[in-house]
Nucleic acid binder design. Structure first.
Lengths: 216, 216
DNA sequence: TGGAAAACATTCCAATCGGCATGTAAGTTC
DNA sequence: GAACTTACATGCCGATTGGAATGTTTTCCA
């Protein structure tokens, strides 16, 4: 782990690879390590069993360092929310690279939402959400961030499907998001995966009909 | 709370109202008190902050009594799941008293599911569900009970709408349940209530179209 | 009516929690 | 290179946790 490279001897090299990490660099490193560890704990242990000690252990960071960056546990959680949301947003953006147009977009859009809002990271979100119900401070931290994620994703679809009526798109989007979250919950406690896939397929069919105007 | 009735004086009356509670009665009383208190804690404090000590305090039961009935905390939680599910089921059954037939049933059925799966009690369910994700023992206790609730409610609708194709009913039912759970999650962290109502209205319109066969 | 059993109460415990206090090392600034 | 700030480390604290141990009351049954 801390093994020194035997080939490098001169002071200049020593300065380059080991020392002289900027304060900003050090700060960012340990902060990221803590936030990643927090998310890992949330997904793996759940909110109730996530302790700062465990987070520090996984991050390879001392308790003192943690407190230096996040005075309280709630503060750490709040920061984790944003970190987490950013990662999900990046995931969605990356996957949205080449989406088709027209009817195909409806189907693939639903898949995209599914992946983004029911993936591994969403388990951590769920933990924080549920915890936030009875924790006003956490709720205050989550609400704006989550709202931003929802809206930015919606805007992404609005860009991808400019020909689609706003009202229709909005409805389909939010219905899909909420349905996805319900299904994600079902998936987490080991519900029937086959039925979930069937439901998703059916929903695609229905959404397609709505898109074509067969409903409204 | 423990005030004695001043009018009653003779031994017979004393025997009746204070003493001579059957063992089964005593057992049932404190068990129910503990389970109700557990649910109250879950809805009010959340799973993470729910301690057996708090439960005992609210139930007005000593720690020893609690341990007599539920050896471990997990055991208490598992029992609370069933208790909770029974209460929800009773709630649904009571509300299903007089449902109309035909298209009207779709709309009111959705409302019924909403009330049952997104009501006050559902917050406690949500807590347990999320906790169960990282707690195998709890998950094992929840799964069958929840499955039974889902199926029995579905059967209720099958009885109420015998003319409806099974596949259509199943699809609409499960879609509604999962959508409801997603929306319930949104409601818990203070999402926009107006938008939720709009979505529910839109979903009713869509479900009605599916029911009429405009989609498949 | 008396003793077994079930229900309930009290006390204690080791473990763990989040957070504070204090000390050291690394980087920055002049 | 010395003063200063930031980053990190260690040890400790009171509070609270779930659970075990032990004692008391109530009901039951022979």
């Amino acid at each position: 782990m801390t093994a020194t490279r035997p080939t490098e001897t001169d002071a200049l090299a020593r300065t380059r690879d080991r020392g002289h990490r900027t304060q900003a660099e050090r700060r960012e490193r340990t902060r990221a390590a803590l936030l990643d560890a927090t998310i890992e704990c949330l997904t793996e242990l759940g909110y109730a069993r996530t302790s700062v000690q465990e987070i520090c252990a996984r991050a390879g960071v001392s308790k003192g360092a943690q407190q230096h960056h996040f005075t309280t546990k709630a503060e750490l959680m709040a920061a984790a929310v944003e970190h987490l949301t950013n990662r999900i947003q990046a995931e969605i953006l990356a996957a949205s690279g080449e989406l088709p147009e027209g009817p195909k977009l409806v189907e693939q859009g639903i898949d995209l939402i599914w992946q983004g809002f029911a993936g591994t990271l969403s388990a951590a979100v769920m933990e924080l959400w549920v915890a936030a119900r009875t924790d006003a401070e956490l709720a205050a931290a989550i609400k704006p961030v989550d709202k931003a994620l929802g809206r930015s994703t919606l805007e992404l679809f609005q860009t991808l499907a400019p020909e689609m009526p706003r009202r229709t798109l909005d409805t389909l989007y939010w219905l899909t998001v909420n349905l996805t979250r319900g299904l994600a919950l079902d998936a987490q406690i080991g519900g029937d995966a086959t039925r979930r896939n069937q439901l998703l397929t059916e929903w695609k069919r229905i959404a397609l009909a709505v898109y074509r105007g067969d409903v409204a």
